[in-house]
Design a binder for these strands. Structure first.
Lengths: 140, 140
DNA sequence: CACGCTGTACTATATCACTAATACACCTTT
DNA sequence: AAAGGTGTATTAGTGATATAGTACAGCGTG
């Protein structure tokens, strides 16, 4: 497994775990339906308490990232999209944050644009396609 | 003043303050050299403790956003750029975070691209110019 | 059913982050 | 020096975080 955690980092352990799992799901390292390591197993590997892992899992479930069932385990959930309006608002907020960060870093507009394009290209396949339906093999 | 704070939000008050001030500096609402409201004054307005404001100011100073001196007050610092390498790393991290967020929101690549371009246009004048010197009145 | 695996609940404890109240230290002006 | 403004250190109370230990609840298999 590729999870790691630093109890000294100041960031709560369960938050670190959440972020790593979110990233893993987003990048495709964890795929839909895949079973997550059990609470006890992961706790053993990371030398932390099962309750801490459980807390991370619970919050991830509330956020719709994973689904969990007693006796069965936890599984990567199907990605669900929220209302379009909330989606836009959240995206705008994220972009605003990016701009503030770029300003603070003294990144010029051109550099920011170029780096964004590069990053987007790397992620294009992971993001939802433009106006595509659930038809897997559309022949257009 | 346009600062506000929600003690119930779960986010520490001093963090909320920091973010708002950062944003104010980035957008130009606060300009270089301008004096910040005093610790006590701001604490009175927000109905919080002066120490909480002080903590925000202290962290902002460590991050180079403001400069502060006992008996004088706090002032918006001159924006300083870090090493180019660290700049790139931080930017990359921010973009990565944006992509993960976009994935979670089920935003498609085209929408993300369009929204980014719009946002960048709005911020273009605030960001550092490409290869420009301190000459204020270039005639080009 | 019995067993072994899952996640969860509960209590107790230790530590640390956050906030607040008070007192202190520094600078400028009078 | 005195006064009134600045930021800061000290102390204390409250709550979040993490741990440990134990017990409980649901699911699948033999």
């Amino acid at each position: 497994m590729w999870y790691y955690v630093d109890p000294q980092s100041g960031v709560p352990i369960y938050v670190q775990l959440k972020e790593q799992i979110k990233k893993a799901v987003a990048t495709g390292l964890l795929t839909e339906g895949e079973q997550m390591p059990s609470v006890r197993e992961l706790a053993l590997q990371l030398t932390i308490n099962p309750n801490t892992v459980s807390k991370a899992y619970q919050e991830l479930e509330r956020e719709g990232i994973i689904q969990t069932a007693r006796g069965l385990g936890s599984f990567v959930a199907k990605r669900q999209k929220g209302k379009e309006q909330e989606q836009k608002i959240a995206l705008d907020k994220a972009l605003e944050k990016l701009m503030i960060e770029a300003y603070q870093l003294s990144v010029d507009a051109d550099t920011l644009h170029n780096e964004f394009i590069d990053k987007l290209a790397a992620w294009k396949d992971r993001l939802v396609k433009g106006a595509q339906n659930n038809d897997s093999g559309n022949r257009t």
